[in-house]
């Protein structure tokens, strides 16, 4: 195996090893595959409060593990996904949801991009629809034409 192929393989293995790796360990998993799938989906949209930009599905933090366990316990107890979310929001606030809910404090976040898009679209539309410019630069005077020609003429060779 050439050195380059080896390097490519090493990078590939590294990427495979890091992408999509969840922190959930086998003993945490539920026996019922359908419930386990719901638990995984929920865990992916719940924020790990300690590491903040990881979901509890990704995080190895002890609190994330505790929260994963709670999610599974609640699902086993017959809670709907919405019940589980509400349980955690009641204790940790909407910050625990990685996807912010639509509420007065987050209106700008949700609507902002569309307002910008609409504004930019309008500006482009108006720019394209504007009447073609009717002003022409004045023609050069005879004097100016001569100066221009002198400037553009190839330098005289001796």
């Amino acid at each position: 195996m050439s050195r380059r192929a080896g390097a490519v393989l090493a990078i590939l293995l590294f990427v495979l090893a890091t992408v999509g790796r969840a922190a959930v360990s086998p003993e945490e998993m539920l026996a019922d595959p359908a419930l386990e799938a719901r638990a995984r989906a929920l865990a992916r949209e719940l924020r790990c409060l300690v590491c903040q930009n990881q979901s509890i599905d990704d995080s190895d933090a002890p609190l994330a593990r505790d929260l994963r366990r709670i999610v599974r316990e609640r699902l086993l107890a017959g809670d709907s996904d919405e019940d589980v979310r509400r349980f955690l929001v009641d204790r940790y606030g909407t910050f625990v949801l990685l996807k912010p809910p639509l509420e007065p404090a987050t209106i700008a976040l949700w609507v902002g991009p569309f307002v910008v898009l609409l504004g930019a679209g309008l500006a482009v539309f108006r720019y394209l629809r504007r009447p073609a410019s009717t002003t022409h630069p004045e023609d050069l005077t005879e004097d100016e034409r001569r100066r221009l020609e002198a400037l553009l003429a190839p330098p005289a060779r001796d």
């Binding site: 409060l49 300690v50 002890p62 609190l63 505790d66 709670i70 204790r91 940790y92």
Partner: peptide
């Protein structure tokens, strides 16, 4: 740590 979670404790 279950009661701490009831209190919304994260550290």
């Amino acid at each position: 740590g279950r009661v701490a979670i009831e209190w919304g404790v994260y550290g």
